[in-house]
Amino acid sequence: MRRRSVLLAVPALMLTAAGCGSGDSSGDAASSPSDSPSDTASPTGTPSASATPTAKIVSGPVPAVTGGTSFDKKPTVAKGSGTPSKDLAVKTVIQGDGPAIASGDFVQVNYLGQVWDTAKVFDTSFGRGPYTNVIGQGKVIPGWDQGLLGQKVRSRVELAIPPALGYGSSGNAQAGIKGTDTLVFVVDVLERFNAKSSATGKAAAQNDASLPKVGANTDGKAPVITVPKGAKAPTKLVAEYVLEGDGAVVKATDNLLLQYKGVLWDTGKEFDSTYAHGQLAAFPLAQLIKGWQQGLAGKKVGSRVMLVTPPGLAYGNQANNGIPANSTLVFTLDILALL
């Protein structure tokens, strides 16, 4: 599956100066049948450029899950029996006990997708790694956008999606999906992220009195950053754990879902924050200032990281949106997920 960044909340402030674009997501939205085809038929995509129909949601029919019946185990699903519904069929196979998904939430899932008539599996994240995207915003196929709303974290949900709510009348020839195919997905909802999400790692020691201290709260509120008074700003990048997670190690090529806040070393004044925007930031690490690229690569998902970024790894001798020239910047960044 070709992953594309969501780019929903990318402040231009954090982007590198050249060749990076802006925070507008229109140039990197989820693929449609008119785009270059992806290597598999992932949930990313829209059926057509026309208005997406609003589904009537029914409880079935959906094929039986015959194997891998435990949560987050790769399922085996029977071939569809009889004629599938023309409506969106949604069945909660395992009821989770976590928070419910709302429009605008990012969800992290494992899933398996197959064709109703043949039981041919055209894509699965089981064994490859979880898939994360935003729900209810047109970044995934409409059957997901509408069928996953209200479902709870740690639920297993089965969807039978008619063509109009999947890949439309064009289908996806590369994946063997015809424009008349009803698609069956089993989706295990692993996690949900929104503007109130925090890293959940283990608190790390912050013993260097010459460095800023960052709050270790996990309540979704902006951590307090305290810059030591009178201390000389470091001339080299500092990247330290505040909360150390146990997720995957970030690579330079990864797309990240983050909460962050930035302040000036000299004054402690905040100049940007996802907490203030009320919206998470999702972007390719490779498009961000060098301090972020170098400081976040090698850190683990689920962590909060404190970065002290000298001018040469930020904006140098150029002023930028409230940041004076030659400023040292201090950031707290929660690495919530990989996209």
Rank of each mutant, 00 (worst) to 15 (best):
S103Y: 04
I135F: 07
S170E: 13
V249D: 06
K300E: 05
G316N: 04
V301C: 03
P212G: 05
A204W: 01
R156F: 06
V242L: 06
F283I: 02
L264R: 10
N133S: 15
G268Q: 11
S70L: 15
I177C: 03
Q279D: 13
I289V: 12
V93Y: 13
Q279P: 04
G98L: 08
S210E: 14
F185V: 05
L333A: 06
F71G: 04
V187Q: 00
A199M: 10
L211H: 11
W144Q: 07
P284Q: 07
G82P: 07
L112V: 06
E158R: 08
D208N: 11
A286P: 03
S31A: 07
L307W: 03
G168V: 03
V227I: 13
I323D: 13
G68C: 00
W144K: 05
V153A: 08
E240N: 15
G27E: 11
L257Q: 04
G220V: 15
T226M: 09
R304V: 12
A89E: 09
P99E: 12
G138Q: 03
A195V: 00
A100W: 00
D24A: 14
L88N: 04
V227G: 08
I161A: 11
S327H: 12
F193A: 00
L264K: 13
A222T: 07
T16L: 14
T76G: 07
F185T: 13
T235P: 03
P284N: 00
G138M: 05
S198I: 07
D246C: 10
P284C: 01
K236S: 09
K269T: 13
S5P: 14
V109C: 09
K269Q: 13
N217C: 05
G298R: 05
D208G: 03
W144M: 02
S303G: 04
V77P: 04
P53C: 05
G215R: 04
F106W: 05
S25D: 09
Q287G: 07
G147I: 02
N217E: 12
A204E: 00
T92M: 03
V184N: 06
E191F: 11
D35A: 15
V224H: 02
K152R: 02
G168C: 03
D181C: 08
P163F: 01
S81H: 03
K261H: 01
Y260K: 03
D117E: 11
A314F: 01
S32P: 09
S59N: 05
P223H: 15
S198K: 05
A30P: 13
K196E: 14
D219Y: 06
A297S: 14
T69S: 10
D105R: 13
P311E: 02
S34M: 13
I161L: 11
M306T: 06
G166I: 00
L339I: 08
I94H: 00
G201W: 01
V214G: 09
P163E: 03
F331S: 06
G295E: 12
D35P: 10
R304S: 12
A216F: 04
D39S: 15
